[in-house]
Design a binder for these strands. Structure first.
Length: 179
DNA sequence: CCCTGATTCGC
DNA sequence: GCGAATCAGG
């Protein structure tokens, strides 16, 4: 069947993992002889657990331990103490009063979230939409849904086609500024 | 319910 | 060392 973790397979595992493939995808790629759990287990044993952009930021809550199924012989006694360890969440105390008004449009870019983004606030995206720190510019929208600054970027009339030169560099550079 | 990675622990 | 079971979360 599967020859265990040969150097070949480990190499493929490393490569695919570092490429950003998910554990299940890697498991398939290795020929189905392994499960995604096996892949993950191996990944951890190899010491490469953290990747550039895991789909999930990983577990934040502390989990005590897992009793794992089936105590083979559980006699009648042992009432089992009601122990339950739990990390106490500090409870950040959300806002003294209710959320003020979204109308108070911040002038600092990137402070508006999807929840606080008002009708006339700049909807220029800040950051990676797949992460939790994603936000919007939020400044006063003047040109369409964007503020003046971002409107310039969003509504770039046309990239002048220059012969032979890299026409995208201008756009790329200007975009880079705002990402 | 699908998926993701993380962790524990019997083997 | 291995990986199933289980977990927490998107």
């Amino acid at each position: 069947m599967n020859p265990g973790w040969t150097e070949d397979r480990v190499g493929a595992l490393k490569k695919l993992w570092l490429e950003g493939q998910s554990a299940s995808q890697i498991a398939k790629a290795l020929g189905g002889g392994v499960t995604r759990n096996a892949v993950i287990g191996k990944v951890h044993r190899l010491g490469l657990s953290g990747r550039a952009a895991p789909s999930q930021p990983a577990r934040t809550t502390f989990r005590p331990a897992r009793p794992r199924a089936a105590a083979p012989a559980a006699p009648v006694q042992a009432p089992s103490a009601p122990r339950r360890i739990e990390a106490v969440a500090p409870r950040p105390v959300a806002a003294a009063s209710q959320t003020p008004t979204p109308a108070a449009a911040p002038e600092l870019p990137g402070t508006a979230t999807v929840l606080t983004l008002g009708a006339h606030m700049c909807k220029w995206p800040i950051g990676d939409p797949s992460t939790s720190d994603f936000s919007f510019c939020g400044r006063r929208a003047s040109e369409g849904v964007y503020c003046v600054e971002h409107a310039r970027v969003a509504y770039q009339p046309q990239v002048r086609k220059s012969a032979g030169k890299d026409a995208s560099s201008d756009l790329a550079r200007s975009l880079r500024r705002y990402i």
